[in-house]
Design a binder for these strands. Structure first.
Lengths: 189, 189
DNA sequence: GCACGCATGTAATTGGTTACATGATTGC
DNA sequence: GCAATCATGTAACCAATTACATGCGTGC
């Protein structure tokens, strides 16, 4: 149930309308917690009912500016400190790897190299964000930077793994079936 | 819609009952594509209706052994080669990082070190699986091994990042606010 | 006056989780 | 005979996606 906490987290920085929040979801949180417009508006309603946020101001075009309440802040802190982060995320790309055996080794290799290219593209995007962003001292900046570094490291590792795996299929193919494949740690450069 | 393909993938290796499939989900696929029992039985029903699997044999206790059909295999191959892997996964643990600013720096550091410990535990688990598994030449073994290596590399990178980030908060705290934090790439050891 | 961006919402559907419900076989 | 395991299914609920629907304000 983390959409709720994503909204609370964003509002803990500054009051915002549903529309503002959507922009924040699409830029800062897009990679970690994507949300749709209908989700955000729905959640704001529930949070208001629960007393965790309130409508702090009304603006033009029916704009409602929401602010986090004391109860909301307490709930956010509680989630951060006391609630165990939820388990394993589904990983579509990796699921496929399990079943690459139904393809030819060549097709399997192509798939892995495609993954490598995707990872490289993701890394490039993160690098671009890093350069273009004016990092300052507010919360989302300081901690957003840590998250960006996470993205950079993970996409790098992802790309390296995919290249290695593609190689691995090449050599497994070269080797005769039945011969044991025990030397992989040696590849770890 | 990948649960469908996970089931097809498993059945492409060998016929199995819903019960068998659940065991496979809980061991091999637990980290990439968790599924519940009700999901699996439901999906088997739908797949049968769609003609992608069929009941190949009836066993004791009402056991139904399912086998993939030619159409099913075609669909599986199609998914592997032609369908773009779906986008960004939600990442609960990382979402929290964005909001660590509402905690004290000390609490934030604790959270990150906790993440590092979790990652280390995950890595240990993968290493154990690696050692205990009799890797042989069947599809799930060959390609499962690649996935395991993925897990190993990612958990390692995850741990290193979390330790680095914890450090980073320490030094950010030491530095005066307003002073620019531009030296992080130097930490990349 | 019109287009674009701001702004909010609802409805239908799908995918996933939790909990419940039941019964047959095997091994001890 | 009894416990453990094999085995299948349903119902209620929650979370997320997609699509639809509407209208006000600002700048050109």
């Amino acid at each position: 149930m983390s959409l709720r906490h994503a909204v609370l987290g964003l509002l803990s920085e500054a009051p915002a309308s549903g529309y503002d929040l959507m922009k924040l979801f699409n830029v800062s949180l897009a990679e970690v917690w994507p949300a749709t417009q209908s989700q955000v508006y729905g959640e704001l309603g529930k949070l208001t009912t629960a007393g965790l946020v309130e409508v702090a101001a009304h603006g033009p075009r029916g704009r409602k500016e929401y602010a986090i309440t004391d109860n909301g802040l307490t709930e956010l802190r509680h989630w951060l400190t006391d609630v165990e982060p939820s388990g394993p995320a589904r990983h579509d790309g990796l699921l496929r790897v399990f079943f690459l055996g139904v393809l030819t080794p060549l097709e399997a290799r192509t798939y892995l190299l495609h993954m490598a290219a995707d990872a490289a593209r993701a890394r490039a995007r993160y690098e671009e964000i890093d350069q273009k962003t004016e990092w300052d001292e507010d919360m989302i900046s300081v901690y957003g930077r840590l998250s960006l570094e996470y993205g950079l490291r993970m996409s790098t590792a992802h790309e390296e793994w995919a290249k290695w795996a593609a190689e691995e299929i090449g050599s497994a193919k070269a080797r005769k079936a039945g011969e044991r494949v025990r030397d992989r740690r040696a590849h770890k450069e």
